[in-house]
Write a protein that binds this DNA or RNA. Structure first.
Length: 419
DNA sequence: GTTGAACTGATAGTTTGGCT
DNA sequence: AGCCAAACTATCAGTTCAAC
């Protein structure tokens, strides 16, 4: 199918561009029609207004100045941040200092991140940002990101408030919701799942809002943070009570630290959890780049920690299918995703650590004195076949399961055109 | 000289996309 | 349809190097 498309590439593009413009026009007409109907306008009035708009849009298309909505993706958001910094306007997007006084409540039925995000987008966000409080709705002002752009705040027909910025020369409009604005303000790893999660967490914590999935997330965050603390002070926290364990893993503590750090950045939805713990994933080749250790070392290290029970690998059948879409969202449209391991991390409490200490002793009795000796065969001899199956799981292949999955569902992006 | 840890490079087995 | 390269998983043999 793709092959046929590429042969007729040129005509496909031009015809799709025409379709795109006509589609945009029609959507604008429909929106006008719905709005007028809702306001109780007569059929005659609507017909007149629709004709007028159609004529205007046709003229714009003919002159090549039809306004186009550009969905702010990673690239656009990075540019927006650069512009914001260049114009020294970061201050405008800081959180209002008196934010605690605004007692924002959310409907009780909201229990999930997704619902929270949908709801928060319908709030008039001016109260939240320090420099937007005195802005008027629908009134044009100078853009805080790009010099020369016209800007206004507007609520769309679904109730979502956005900061719109229009480039008068290119005839493009970008719309940013409250999470986009926070993401641009925060500026770390823009466009990633982490960045979007971070924006959500920031907003919830600034407003003091907790809902059930957020409660779960807070517990997960605490688990990871406590783990990271223990790993950082391992020469005290682990070495004292568990000297053999410490000796066994001391050279790879930074790898364990990294896994926890990666984990806390990738707490996804509660429905993507396994036995209550958040699931995350990372290839060992990616790990290699971040940790700075050879990929094969990372792989063996991961297996060592899995044998000791300081991390858990998730078997393919236990990976929630809903997570796979998120997995693809994280990787984007790049074809880099084939087989990968999924993980959960337990809280490194006394029970987990003493179990690990015992396992180190057992490994040593079976002649496994270091990480390099850990292999499927050796682990089976030392423990049991069922134990080995928990460590050496088949990496999960997700590609074919993803074909129908939508990226946007999981990235929470809204691509409603506007001008 | 022996030993062991850390690393390197080779290789096996799989899936996938692209090319012919 | 068949073949190849790439990217993922993994193990293992061999090298380097430092400590004892």
């Amino acid at each position: 199918m793709k092959r046929e498309g590429s042969i007729n590439l040129a005509p496909t593009i031009s015809s799709s561009k025409i379709k795109e413009k006509q589609f945009r026009k029609q959507k604008r007409i429909d929106r006008l029609k719905n709005k007028m109907e809702a306001e109780g306008a007569t059929g005659k009035e609507i017909r007149k207004a629709v004709y007028k708009l159609k004529h205007l849009e046709d003229k714009k298309i003919e002159e090549g100045i039809q306004t186009k909505y550009v969905e702010p993706g990673k690239k656009e958001k990075v540019l927006l941040r650069e512009g914001l910094l260049q114009n020294s306007n970061l201050e405008i997007l800081t959180t209002t200092s008196s934010i605690a006084e605004h007692k924002i409540t959310i409907p009780e039925k909201i229990t999930k991140h997704k619902e929270f995000m949908e709801y928060m987008q319908t709030l008039n966000f001016r109260f939240y940002f320090n420099g937007l409080q005195d802005w008027n709705i629908n009134k044009t002002r100078a853009c805080i990101f790009f010099e020369g752009n016209k800007t206004w705040i507007q609520q769309d027909d679904k109730g979502v408030y956005r900061y719109y910025s229009k480039d008068e020369e290119k005839h493009t409009v970008q719309g940013l919701n409250i999470f986009d604005l926070i993401e641009i303000r925060e500026g770390t790893e823009i466009g990633s799942i982490y960045s979007m999660n971070n924006a959500r967490r920031r907003l919830a914590s600034d407003l003091g809002i907790v809902y059930s999935e957020r409660q779960w997330e807070i517990l997960q965050e605490k688990k990871y943070e406590k783990n990271i603390g223990i790993i950082q002070r391992a020469d005290v926290e682990i070495k004292g009570d568990f000297p053999k364990l410490f000796d066994f893993i001391k050279s790879y503590l930074h790898l364990l630290g990294h896994l926890n750090d990666w984990g806390v950045k990738h707490i996804l939805e509660e429905e993507h959890s396994f036995k209550g713990e958040s699931i995350f994933f990372q290839s060992t080749t990616h790990m290699e780049k971040i940790v700075g250790k050879d990929q094969t070392i990372c792989s063996r290290g991961v297996n060592m920690f899995a044998v000791l029970g300081l991390i858990n690998k998730i078997r393919e059948e236990d990976v929630p299918s809903s997570l796979l879409g998120v997995a693809q969202a994280i990787r984007g449209r790049r074809n880099e995703f084939r087989l990968v391991n999924f993980y959960t991390v337990p809280a490194l409490n006394h029970q987990v650590l003493s179990e690990a200490e015992e396992r180190v002793e057992r490994l040593k009795r079976y002649g496994i004195t270091s990480m390099t000796h850990i292999s499927k065969k050796q682990v089976t001899e030392c423990f049991s076949e069922s134990f080995t199956k928990k460590v050496y799981v088949n990496p999960t292949s997700i590609r074919e399961q993803l074909l129908e999955k939508s990226l946007k569902d999981h990235l929470y992006y809204d691509i409603e055109p506007a001008d």
